[in-house]
Write a protein that binds this DNA or RNA. Sequence first.
DNA 1: GAACGATATGTAATCGGTTAAAAAGGCTAT
DNA 2: ATAGCCTTTTTAACCGATTACATATCGTTC
Lengths: 330, 330
Amino acid sequence: MATIRDVSKLAGVSTTTVSRYLNQNSYVGKKTSEKIQNAIDELNYSPSAVARSLSTSSSNLIGLLFPNLSNPYFPQLIDGIEGELKRRGYTVLLGRLDNKDEFPSYLRTFENNNIAGIISSAGIIPAQKVSVPIVEVDRISQNSKYFVTTNDFLGGSLIGDNVARTVGTTNIAIIKGPNTSRKSIDRFEGLCSVLLKYPALKITEIASNTFDIKLVDSVIKQIFDLDPFPDTIIAQNDLYAIVILQELLKRGIKVPEQTQVIGYDGINFLDLIYPRIATVEQPIYELGSETANLMVQIIENSNLKETQIQLDVKFSAGATLRPTRKEIYH
Amino acid sequence: MATIRDVSKLAGVSTTTVSRYLNQNSYVGKKTSEKIQNAIDELNYSPSAVARSLSTSSSNLIGLLFPNLSNPYFPQLIDGIEGELKRRGYTVLLGRLDNKDEFPSYLRTFENNNIAGIISSAGIIPAQKVSVPIVEVDRISQNSKYFVTTNDFLGGSLIGDNVARTVGTTNIAIIKGPNTSRKSIDRFEGLCSVLLKYPALKITEIASNTFDIKLVDSVIKQIFDLDPFPDTIIAQNDLYAIVILQELLKRGIKVPEQTQVIGYDGINFLDLIYPRIATVEQPIYELGSETANLMVQIIENSNLKETQIQLDVKFSAGATLRPTRKEIYH
DNA sequence: GAACGATATGTAATCGGTTAAAAAGGCTAT
DNA sequence: ATAGCCTTTTTAACCGATTACATATCGTTC
């Protein structure tokens, strides 16, 4: 590989001048510029990111932390993040946290590589000092300075609106996410803000202490042990909704006639499932690209417009929801 | 961040000695070692990967190239790759190829970062000179030197075996992968090696020129235009199988009584789908970890046992397959 | 007690960039 | 003609590691 010194020799100038030409941050004469560009072309030169990183104590590397990929939500999110970062000239260093204890190890690796920032959707980042900016997405920890999220209260209330109006709805089971999660709480509150207007509704909460899909079995069991069986199941996310739907079909329970199901997230996998599951669509790709965008703005020190971004969600009708009855409260 | 100079000063030795202590590659006295370790602990020192990389022209970074994450097969594969690499002390640089034109750009970025090797499941890697070892997994390009794959001929024949023996099987539709893919060809040949023993079977090939799930609609259309409608559909992968299954259910076609369906891959998503789809299970995680393993062996120059690894697959029965009839050919 | 090998440590160059400081040439205004 | 400013370029130090080469000490062996 050619070095800046090779280029400077071939162009007959000093390395300083070449460096200035490359970084466009100081005066370089027109003829000199041409000579340098010719040398670069001839040698197929490309500056070493490593040397640059050592010299400037910064880089174009972004550390990406996420919990696991078993929920297709994350691959979609990563698509958005990586896509935007690539476009902006940054490269992603991968960090998959099987459990939170791995954080210090990744942090050390990241810092040793002079990363410019960390994007995390892994939830709680220990309060310990991290030397670079952290942007969180989806799973936000408390006291987070920079984050991108969606309007979960809105999402919850959209579900409430749409569910409460369907015919034959009297007995609702809600799978509630972990109480430690701001998102879960907001969704639940959004949901309740609507449902409490309908005092005749029976509501059963089923706690799911984690987002981990592996623990779905115990949740399923709790639901199907309910007596009387609910006519409406509000799942914590699409993955739960899919499992519940399949289980209902297996047991011969008619969907949505006997029981209607609604998910959350809008993962692209829903396209493959019949019947189409009603859900709240998050703009997953945009969530990722906005996160990347915010990260780059922080790094490049543009005047930051917002440091905390909230995107809207929208309701996506589906075949797992009963038709709306005549509105009587309105 | 503390540097090796800080450590050497605190320990009262030269940086050379500290470096030797860290890399365990030369004599360091016992007492000196203790002093150095104490200094390291006190300063919470960790060597700069960047400086090391510049100095040695190598790193612990591995570039990972893959096509996209829309098929859950890839997230699982990446789990395996990243998991093993992390255990071995390597870090992954992400490269998502939306299209093949992006390869040179990623290659350049990777090389500028002194990566130690590239793992690719993105298919055709241009023949151009790449300065580091490339290990391919799943989608192998021609003339590949290092790769990890599964026994596709075996997989195809397993499907043949299991399908041919089911009751009422006379009319089989096969979704065939791209002819440019060694894997697709092998699977098809494995399948045919069995099916041709049953001359009474009617076989229809449906070409799918790509693995891209987005183009699934045209394939679906071709299938459902078939007349007479097949009693057996052999999908190219599980994702296709899921879509086809849902479409069959939507149209009220009984599965497996009227038409049986079989997939390929064994993605963990099948766990969520009812009825359980019969498939050929690839050891996806192991495929990833073996790939990482091979990569590390190449880099660390151990005596390589194998440079091309083929893992076995196994048949996974499911509820989308009809029962076996009495074997009459055997 | 001289020669030798093993052990132990240090000096200084190097990897490939960036950048502060200095210097030199050209232009304009007085 | 001189000062002052803008433009252009170079010299040389530096980022934080590694490593070839030099040097010193020690214990063995003949």
